[in-house]
Computed example of a mutant assay.
Amino acid sequence: MEFLDLLLKTVVLRPYVFVFLAVFLFLAGRLIGWRRTGYFMGITFIVAFLCEFSSTHTGIPFGWYHYTGSTVGEELYMLNVPFMDSLSFPFLLYASYCMALAFLLPAESMENRSPRINLIRMGFPLTARTGWPVMLLTILFFTYLDIVIDPVTLRGERWFLGRIYYYPDPGTHFGVPIANYIGWAVVAFLSLGAYLPLDRKFLQTGLSPAPLVTRRVLLGCGLYYGVLIFNLAITFWIGESLMGITGLFIYLPITVLLGLRLLGRLPAQA
């Protein structure tokens, strides 16, 4: 009963986390099927928790940081790590995966398309969605997202997150150590390194039908931008204009390139 009570308190305290999580489950289930979604979520959650627990005790892989425990009794913890923190990694990684897919999945030539159809039509072959290019680009998008997320969460006492953690030695990027971003890349590498080989072994069932792949990948990209906009909005709301403008400048070229890719203006595989 105590577990269920703390879980309910966590949902009430962190509704935005569970909204993003629910969106992820719905979208991933439609693109990659429920079996793959379950493995994706389970693997990423476990890897994230182990890495967070390790960092708070050894400094590896995120560097040294500590949870304050200020919300103990108000939300669910796993040992010394807030449950909602590790739970955020699966939907952040999935959204980053969809961003990589949007750039790297093979697409039909625009020359053979009706002029009324403006967006490219992506395929969803196994080799393309599980290859090294997708893995590396996913890691990049995942780490880029934390460049916006971590500086504002570090200032959680100025908004409804609360001051839940701190770095004993503040870093150079708005107080965030570079080691933290390396840690995010490690979590993505380990999670995808475990999930993608499983995807190759599964039967090719439960996947999105070809005509819907583009739409469902773009919905995953929408989740990515939803998280991004949420964090940028909080950043400007608490008065950190320089942080917010930095985040906007980071994502402006990415957004332009994504638009060009979707309109068939960038080179695409046949």
Rank of each mutant, 00 (worst) to 15 (best):
L4R: 11
D5P: 03
L6T: 10
L6F: 04
L6C: 11
T10E: 11
T10G: 02
V11N: 01
V11K: 02
V11A: 01
V17F: 15
F18V: 05
F20V: 12
L21G: 06
F24M: 09
F24G: 04
L25N: 14
G29V: 00
R30E: 11
R30W: 06
R36F: 12
G38N: 02
M41C: 05
L50G: 07
C51I: 12
F53H: 01
S55Q: 06
T56Q: 08
T58F: 13
G63K: 01
W64E: 11
Y65A: 09
Y65S: 07
G69Q: 07
S70V: 10
G73N: 10
E75Y: 03
Y77E: 07
M78W: 12
N80A: 06
V81T: 11
P82Y: 06
F83C: 04
M84N: 01
S88D: 01
F91H: 09
L92N: 02
L93N: 00
C98R: 10
C98P: 04
A100D: 03
L101S: 02
L101V: 08
L104D: 06
E108F: 14
E108R: 14
N112I: 07
R121H: 13
R121Q: 13
F124D: 05
F124K: 08
T127G: 12
A128F: 10
R129N: 09
M135S: 14
M135L: 15
L136Q: 05
L136W: 14
L137T: 05
I139R: 08
D146V: 08
I147P: 10
D150P: 06
D150Q: 11
L154T: 05
L154D: 00
E157H: 11
R163S: 04
Y167K: 07
P168R: 11
P168A: 07
D169I: 07
P170H: 13
V176P: 04
I178L: 15
Y181V: 07
A185Q: 02
V186H: 02
V187G: 10
F189E: 06
P197W: 01
K201Y: 11
P209N: 15
A210S: 15
P211D: 08
V213A: 14
Y224F: 09
Y225A: 03
V227G: 05
V227A: 05
N231L: 03
A233L: 09
I234N: 03
I234M: 06
T235I: 01
T235W: 14
T235V: 04
F236E: 04
W237A: 10
W237V: 04
G239W: 01
L242Q: 14
M243R: 02
G244C: 05
F249A: 15
V256K: 09
L257Q: 03
L262Q: 05
G264R: 02
R265H: 14
L266M: 13
P267S: 02
